[in-house]
Design a protein around this nucleic acid. Sequence first.
DNA 1: GCGACAG
DNA 2: ATCTTGTCGC
Length: 275
Amino acid sequence: MKRDTFDDDGKEASESSWSPEIQNNWIETQDLLKTSLVTEDDFTWHLPTTTAIGGGGGGLKYVGGVDVSFSKDDPSIACGTLVVLDFHTLDVVYHDYSLVSLHIPYVTGFLAFREAPILLELLEKMKNCAHPFYPQLLMVDGNGLLHPRGFGLACHLGVQANLPTIGIGKNLHHVDGLTQYRVRQLLEAKGNFPEDFITLTGDSGRVWGAAMRSTVDTFKPIFISVGHRVSLPTAVKIAKMTCKFRIPEPIRQVRMFGNVSVFLFFVFVYLLCFV
DNA sequence: GCGACAG
DNA sequence: ATCTTGTCGC
């Protein structure tokens, strides 16, 4: 066990986020937000390759990606990043970031409490100025329903921002008997089509998401799960359509922008100190 | 009881 | 999350 909990003043009080009581509050919050969760298609736009059924809406054009990146030198510094891509060209048409110092620790199953606030802030900023590129759909670096309580970061963010979201995991969050090994076996057994995917069904029979080989030259899948207002089949389709490489472009791009931002920040600090 | 556990 | 080194291929 970690014994670095000091029962004194403010600075180490962040460790109290680990306390069972705080975690119970977090679970309550998740349960409350879950009340508003929609796991079916609920949007006005339509997919380009799909026949326009919904009335009024145009095609999907602006797809957002969000991520929070950190620095090895100073783990308390975090960089929340938001990018928006043109869905057809997959070019970045908007990007913004925010550097903050995070005091909430990462606790498995509670990623949203660490990362959602800063990402929401970036979305709000964009919405408040009625930016024309405000995303119609958000891809999140983290899971949605594929979560111990069926409410991961992608769901959390989707409900709070009232945006359709898709969760993209680069590693499997072990839930309901799902293991890397089982997933690999299923993927290999199911066929070697590169764009093939398998549905992630747990021991309980519940469907948590999908694992997809997004590229021909990798056996390591990505894990797609429903965030908010998007069904699993739609989520898989969209993920597939945005994969130039293993990681869908909105996620890949947002991570690159985040890393560059952190790097430039430290260059700036360095110049400030030595020039 | 112990280990495993998105980012 | 973040780091590491080498390696393959265009």
